[in-house]
Design a binder for these strands. Structure first.
Lengths: 182, 182
DNA sequence: ACCCTACCTTCCTGTGTTGACATGTCACTT
DNA sequence: AAGTGACATGTCAACACAGGAAGGTAGGGT
């Protein structure tokens, strides 16, 4: 349950309300660990029960401003440094590739072409974000930049791979049945 | 719910029982879309209810051999060719990186070093699998090889990134406080 | 005959995730 | 005074995922 740690991480920077956190999730963490409102408020409640966060202040419309507690900070640091990252990567894309041999090569290539396009779009999104951060002087330290760099590399690699794979299929199906005029 | 399509994809190759499918998941799909036994049997039941698969034969110990139906095949092909791949990638690793600035740079580097190690191990696993497939003459077509190639590239990239990131932190913290003797 | 192992399925509990719906308040405009 | 939009939280149903307990059958070896 990484949502818990995402919330702790954000609260360690600044105290915030559920609503604030939701906004941050939407703009900033959406590409890394999406979360919905219902999940978020529920988790905040649980964090408060566990005394990892406290309600520091109550505001206008029932607003509750949460702040991280010492116990919460300890938990966050523990997670950041001592908990093994999970290795499993569930990939929709790879699963499809695994079965792609069951449709004809024309369709398979079409799928990979689409995948390359999507990756290219993702790449642009990351580039825009990088630019935004570079200009906007966000409070992002080196570490924010590391995340961005990862997004850039990943989307670029995925695109290259999809294009390569498409060519690979073309080559191998070409030997069986030359493209010819259709 | 891609588990559904994973099952359809496997059944499109050969009819199989839940038990058979479970074995296949353990050895072959574990790196792509892990699933547990409870999930698997439940989903098979639902697939049968929806008539996307049929019980083709009943064997010795209550064994039920499932086969894909025409409707199932249609659904599979639809998913393979017409359903948009999901873009969101939940990454434990990236989430950590996002907050890594909250621990001192020594610890941050240690984490990235560990991440590079893990990626290297993953890479070896993929290499071993590639070798195994190349020798074993599995029924893997070009498409199986594409998956393997992706695993290789991805793990290599992740490792390179982690090493680069570690260097990046070293460089930036070095300017603040030179490494010195400790 | 006996036991062990592999085979095979069902059920249960708990947590994570999503989407939709419900409810209400404050600030600002018209 | 009424309306609108941003602020803010809570709850529900449904599905996805993980782990494990429980139970039963068939075949092979001793």
């Amino acid at each position: 349950m990484s949502l818990r740690h995402a919330l702790l991480g954000l609260l360690a920077r600044n105290p915030a309300s559920g609503y604030d956190l939701l906004k941050i999730f939407e703009i900033s963490l959406a590409n890394v660990w999406p979360a919905t409102q219902s999940q978020l408020y529920a988790e905040l409640g649980r964090l408060a029960d566990a005394e990892l966060v406290t309600v520091a202040a109550e505001g206008p419309r029932g607003r509750k401003e949460y702040a991280i507690s010492d116990a919460g900070l300890a938990e966050l640091h523990h997670w950041l440094t001592a908990v093994e990252p999970r290795k499993i990567v569930r990939s929709d894309m790879l699963l499809r590739v695994f079965f792609l041999g069951q449709v004809d090569s024309e369709q398979a290539r079409a799928y990979l072409r689409r995948q390359a396009e999507i990756s290219a779009e993702e790449h642009e999104k990351w580039e825009a974000l990088t630019e935004f951060v570079a200009e906007g002087e966000d409070d992002l330290s080196v570490f924010g930049l590391l995340s961005l760099e990862w997004g850039l590399r990943f989307s670029a690699m995925q695109r290259e791979w999809a294009e390569w794979a498409e060519g690979e299929i073309e080559r191998s199906s070409g030997t069986d049945a030359p493209p010819a005029a259709r």
